[in-house]
Write a protein that binds this DNA or RNA. Structure first.
Lengths: 139, 139
DNA sequence: CTTGCATCTGTAGCTGCTACAGATCGTATC
DNA sequence: GATACGATCTGTAGCAGCTACAGATGCAAG
């Protein structure tokens, strides 16, 4: 970060490069009210400030952790209230963790079913395939 | 299954009840060409046959295993060709298994990050929250 | 002044459904 | 035959969370 470079704010392309969030996605976040409407140049281009950069980083990290946009909105509301309580954030995160664990459990079941099916398969160039049979079975 | 009940085919509601696939979803599958266009009564209601019931079961099972609709289309194409080879099915399934394992691995990383964040949290009614801090950190 | 990339708005598409509204079908009962 | 009532019909729009255009401008360097 140069010392004078951002006196007039960051254009959207720089926001994108620094956070790794796609330009179209940044505009999308603005449209749905997750990012604030930034200042504009005389010509109409967006000019972001440092707080907005931090906010976008936050969104990106939270998305990376699998929070939905609505959950992120909730986190911002808590953070924006001066009196938010840490335990609300805690609870939201615990809920999210539970849903992640749930997904893991389901995927593991899947994994077992798929690998069982695969191990039944002789892999020959024949028209009898135990995998297709398993899927076609009516009972 | 009664012996005469389906002489004239299954109406969509029965297809739905037997397979557990939502009526709207069955019509959706038809629209995207995953289910064939069924016969119609004089009045225009859909009348399905047993093959179509099997096909819908197949879709439902494959969806349950996390195959995408496109992958299922691929499986049907293989099954519909008289000369499909079992090893193509095998390979598609192996690929799918790999993507399931990949998802599991990613979710496990997530799980660890979330549970670490949670264990940092004292849960107090204070405005310093290590969870929010972790998300807001710029570096 | 021109070149040329960056950005703009607006809209449509993606996956896999789901949810209407408003009309018609089909069957049982009177 | 009339009527009632659930099942089904078509068509369209919505959900999450983006992504991908088209066609018009902005802006900075040479």
């Amino acid at each position: 970060m140069g010392q004078f470079t951002n006196a007039r704010g960051y254009p959207i392309g720089q926001m994108s490069r620094e956070t790794g969030v796609n330009i179209e996605t940044i505009r999308y976040y603005e449209r749905i009210g997750l990012m604030p409407k930034p200042d504009r140049t005389a010509g109409g281009n967006r000019q972001y400030n440092h707080d907005q950069l931090k906010r976008l980083f936050f969104i990106r990290r939270a998305r990376g952790l699998g929070f939905t946009l609505d959950e992120i909105r909730g986190l911002f509301e808590m953070a924006d209230r001066q009196d938010y309580s840490c335990s609300e954030v805690h609870d939201l995160t615990v809920d999210h963790l539970a849903s992640v664990r749930d997904k893991i459990a389901n995927l593991k079941k899947l994994e077992k079913m798929l690998s069982d099916m695969i191990s039944q398969c002789s892999r020959g160039d024949v028209p009898e395939c135990p995998i297709l049979d398993a899927l076609f079975e009516v009972n």
